[in-house]
């Protein structure tokens, strides 16, 4: 899916857990998420703490979109 969006000319960042599969599926901007059942959250934490993490992930995703890349790049989230 990510490749078709990129092919349509829209920069896209892929937030997903399974980075290697995302690599094989061809995403250029990748942000590793938390876990498959809850990529942008962690039920072990409180709602507020979860939101802090979610903000960090989405902020990293936006930064990825604002960064020039020439090949597949993983943008690590700084927790």
């Amino acid at each position: 899916m990510v490749k078709e969006i990129e092919r349509a000319g829209i920069p896209v960042v892929h937030i997903c857990t399974v980075t290697p599969i995302s690599m094989t599926v061809g995403a250029n901007r990748i942000v590793p998420a938390i876990a498959i059942p809850h990529p942008l959250g962690n039920p072990a934490l409180s709602m507020e703490e979860e939101k802090v993490i979610r903000r960090k992930i989405v902020e990293t995703a936006l930064e990825a979109l604002e960064t020039e890349v020439d090949k597949q790049t993983i943008f690590e989230v700084k927790y």
Binding site: I5, I10, I15, L65
Partner: peptide, 16 residues
Amino acid sequence: SQKLVAAGVDAVVLTS
């Protein structure tokens, strides 16, 4: 994606 282009979307955040 065609619909997104037509709607003038500048970027996409894709979660999986």
